[in-house]
Lab assay of single mutants.
Amino acid sequence: MATVKFKYKGEEKEVDISKIKKVWRVGKMISFTYDEGGGKTGRGAVSEKDAPKELLQMLEKQ
């Protein structure tokens, strides 16, 4: 499965596409929420050019 690499609050993070719950576009950025486990929801964003094609496909399906 594909992963998304991004920075959040200065920390490098990587999340599996299957854990992503919601995806939306903000200008040229793709924002998303994902399941961190333990009932927590994380947030992240990547630029449109750095987003994996699976993430862009999720955006188109909504």
Rank of each mutant, 00 (worst) to 15 (best):
M1W: 11
M1Q: 12
M1L: 04
M1N: 15
M1P: 13
M1V: 09
M1D: 07
A2C: 14
A2I: 13
A2R: 06
A2E: 06
A2W: 02
A2H: 07
A2Y: 03
T3K: 14
T3G: 02
T3Y: 03
T3D: 01
T3M: 03
T3F: 03
T3E: 01
T3L: 06
T3A: 06
V4Q: 00
V4D: 00
V4G: 00
V4W: 00
V4S: 00
V4C: 01
K5Y: 02
K5Q: 02
K5V: 03
F6A: 03
F6M: 02
F6I: 11
F6R: 00
F6Y: 04
F6G: 01
K7D: 11
K7T: 12
K7N: 13
K7I: 12
K7H: 10
K7C: 15
K7R: 07
Y8W: 08
Y8T: 04
Y8Q: 05
Y8D: 15
Y8I: 09
Y8E: 10
K9S: 04
K9N: 13
K9T: 01
K9P: 01
G10R: 01
G10D: 08
G10T: 02
E11T: 03
E11D: 04
E11R: 03
E11C: 11
E11W: 03
E11L: 04
E12P: 04
E12N: 06
E12G: 03
E12Q: 06
E12W: 12
E12F: 09
E12S: 07
K13N: 02
K13S: 02
K13H: 04
K13E: 01
K13C: 03
K13P: 00
K13Q: 03
K13F: 08
K13M: 09
E14I: 06
E14D: 03
E14G: 01
E14W: 04
E14F: 02
E14M: 05
V15K: 01
V15R: 01
V15W: 00
V15Y: 01
V15L: 03
D16F: 09
D16H: 04
D16L: 09
D16R: 06
D16T: 09
D16C: 13
D16I: 11
D16V: 09
I17T: 06
I17A: 03
I17F: 04
I17C: 12
I17R: 02
I17N: 01
S18L: 10
S18A: 05
S18W: 09
S18M: 04
S18D: 05
S18I: 14
S18G: 08
K19R: 07
K19P: 01
K19I: 06
I20V: 04
I20A: 01
I20W: 01
I20T: 02
I20Y: 00
I20D: 00
I20L: 08
K21M: 12
K21N: 10
K21Q: 11
K21L: 14
K22P: 01
K22N: 15
K22T: 12
K22V: 13
K22L: 14
K22Q: 13
K22F: 12
K22I: 14
K22M: 14
V23A: 11
V23D: 00
V23T: 15
V23P: 02
W24S: 07
W24A: 14
W24G: 11
W24H: 13
W24K: 09
W24F: 07
W24L: 13
W24I: 11
R25A: 15
V26M: 12
V26W: 04
V26G: 05
V26A: 10
V26P: 05
V26C: 15
V26L: 04
G27V: 09
G27C: 14
G27N: 11
G27D: 15
G27L: 06
G27T: 10
K28M: 09
K28C: 15
M29Q: 11
M29D: 14
M29F: 06
M29S: 08
M29W: 09
M29L: 09
M29I: 05
I30P: 00
I30E: 00
I30S: 00
I30F: 11
I30W: 03
I30R: 00
I30H: 01
I30C: 06
S31T: 08
S31A: 13
S31K: 06
S31C: 10
S31F: 08
S31P: 07
S31N: 09
S31D: 10
F32Y: 00
F32S: 00
F32R: 00
F32E: 00
F32N: 00
F32K: 00
F32V: 03
F32H: 00
F32M: 03
T33I: 12
T33A: 12
T33Q: 11
T33S: 07
T33E: 13
T33P: 00
T33G: 05
Y34K: 00
Y34A: 01
Y34C: 01
Y34R: 00
Y34E: 00
Y34S: 01
D35R: 03
D35E: 14
D35W: 08
D35F: 08
D35A: 06
D35Q: 09
D35Y: 07
D35V: 12
D35H: 06
E36L: 09
E36Y: 04
E36H: 06
E36K: 04
E36D: 08
E36I: 04
E36T: 04
E36G: 09
G37L: 07
G37K: 05
G37H: 14
G38H: 09
G38Y: 08
G38I: 11
G38C: 15
G38D: 06
G38W: 05
G38A: 10
G38E: 11
G38Q: 14
G38L: 06
G39T: 09
G39R: 10
G39E: 10
G39N: 11
G39C: 15
G39K: 07
K40L: 10
K40A: 15
K40Y: 06
K40G: 14
K40M: 12
K40W: 08
K40F: 12
K40Q: 14
K40H: 14
K40N: 12
T41A: 09
T41Y: 07
T41P: 14
T41G: 08
T41F: 14
G42L: 12
G42V: 08
G42Q: 08
G42E: 14
G42D: 14
G42R: 06
G42N: 09
G42A: 10
G42S: 08
G42W: 04
G42H: 10
R43C: 15
R43E: 14
R43V: 08
R43F: 10
R43D: 07
R43T: 14
G44E: 01
G44N: 02
G44Y: 02
G44W: 02
G44Q: 01
G44H: 01
G44R: 00
G44P: 01
G44F: 02
G44I: 02
G44C: 02
A45H: 11
A45E: 15
A45M: 06
A45C: 13
A45Q: 07
A45I: 11
A45T: 07
A45V: 06
V46E: 01
V46R: 02
V46A: 04
V46N: 03
V46D: 00
S47L: 14
S47E: 06
S47Q: 08
S47N: 11
S47A: 10
E48T: 07
E48W: 04
E48N: 09
E48Y: 08
E48V: 10
K49V: 15
K49E: 13
K49N: 08
K49G: 09
K49F: 08
K49Q: 09
D50I: 07
D50L: 14
D50V: 05
D50S: 07
D50C: 13
D50W: 13
A51F: 05
A51Y: 03
A51E: 02
A51M: 06
A51S: 14
P52V: 07
P52S: 03
P52Y: 03
P52H: 05
P52Q: 04
K53G: 12
K53Y: 08
K53D: 14
K53Q: 14
K53R: 04
K53F: 10
E54A: 07
E54G: 04
E54V: 04
E54R: 03
E54W: 04
L55W: 11
L55F: 07
L55R: 00
L55Y: 00
L55P: 00
L55I: 11
L56P: 03
L56S: 05
L56I: 12
L56H: 12
L56C: 15
L56W: 09
L56T: 12
Q57E: 08
Q57F: 08
Q57D: 09
Q57W: 11
Q57C: 15
Q57S: 06
M58Y: 12
M58G: 05
M58E: 12
M58C: 14
L59W: 11
L59E: 08
L59G: 05
L59K: 03
L59T: 12
L59H: 06
E60N: 15
E60S: 12
E60R: 09
E60F: 07
E60Y: 05
E60Q: 07
E60W: 03
E60D: 08
E60C: 15
K61G: 07
K61A: 12
K61P: 12
K61C: 14
K61D: 10
Q62G: 14
Q62S: 13
Q62K: 05
Q62F: 03
Q62V: 05
Q62M: 14
Q62L: 13
